[in-house]
């Protein structure tokens, strides 16, 4: 590799390659965003549940096991609504379909939009909590003083590993009034559109 005397080496190919690495790594930084979501979806770490409705056609009810599912709900610090689950916790058999309700009330004097974002603990159990219908799939628009009963239909996958006996499902409700995208599903990829 050493350069013979008096001959000027051509630096351009090497510089080009290094610049390509630099740009690729800049792109990689951004690629980490969807990669992280895919990784979390596949492994269930971070307690993210699927934002797509599940189907229950092949689920077999396992009567021998009983799982406790706990429900938590809280509005985000900037969200003035009241938000709570009707049921604190229930026991279910894996594969058994259950329907529970959450209550939301807009106590302000203005029409507002809310979006609930779920999180499951322990994180790995998130993969096995299948929601067939959930208010978190959509945003909710409530007029001043309006109350809403919001359904959550789910079942626990019988494949849930043995070490889990309790699953906690927690929702945080965010104020999305300023994000004017009423039909947005809690997206996998971060979305723009804050037209303040």
């Amino acid at each position: 590799m050493a350069v013979p005397q008096q001959q000027k080496p051509d630096h351009k190919p090497l510089i080009k390659r290094l610049l390509v690495i630099t740009l690729a790594m800049f792109g990689f930084g951004y690629a980490l965003v969807p990669l992280y979501d895919v990784f979390c979806d596949l492994t269930g770490i971070n307690g993210k549940t699927s934002s797509m409705a599940a189907t229950a056609d092949k689920a077999v009810v396992d009567l021998k096991r009983e799982i406790t599912v706990e429900f938590l709900a809280r509005p985000n610090a900037d969200m003035p609504w009241l938000f709570k689950p009707q049921t604190q916790k229930i026991k279910v058999h894996p594969g058994e379909i259950k329907l529970v309700y959450y209550e939301a009330e807009n106590i302000t004097a203005a029409t507002m939009t809310g979006q609930a974002v779920p999180s499951v603990a322990p994180g790995q159990a998130a993969l096995y909590l299948n929601k067939m219908e959930c208010f978190c799939f959509n945003q909710q628009v409530l007029t001043a003083g309006q109350k809403l009963l919001m359904p959550l239909q789910f079942y626990v996958d019988p494949a849930l590993p043995e070490q889990f006996s309790t699953i906690t499902l927690s929702y945080t409700l965010y104020d999305m009034t300023k994000h004017s995208q009423p039909e947005t599903v809690a997206a996998l990829i971060p979305t723009g559109g804050n037209h303040e």
Binding site: V117, T172, A187, L188, P190, G192, N194, H195
Partner: peptide, 14 residues
């Protein structure tokens, strides 16, 4: 400043 939600849970970020 530009309304993306890479790190904002409300907009689907983390």
């Amino acid at each position: 400043y530009f309304g993306t939600s890479f790190f904002d849970a409300a907009g689907g970020g983390d």
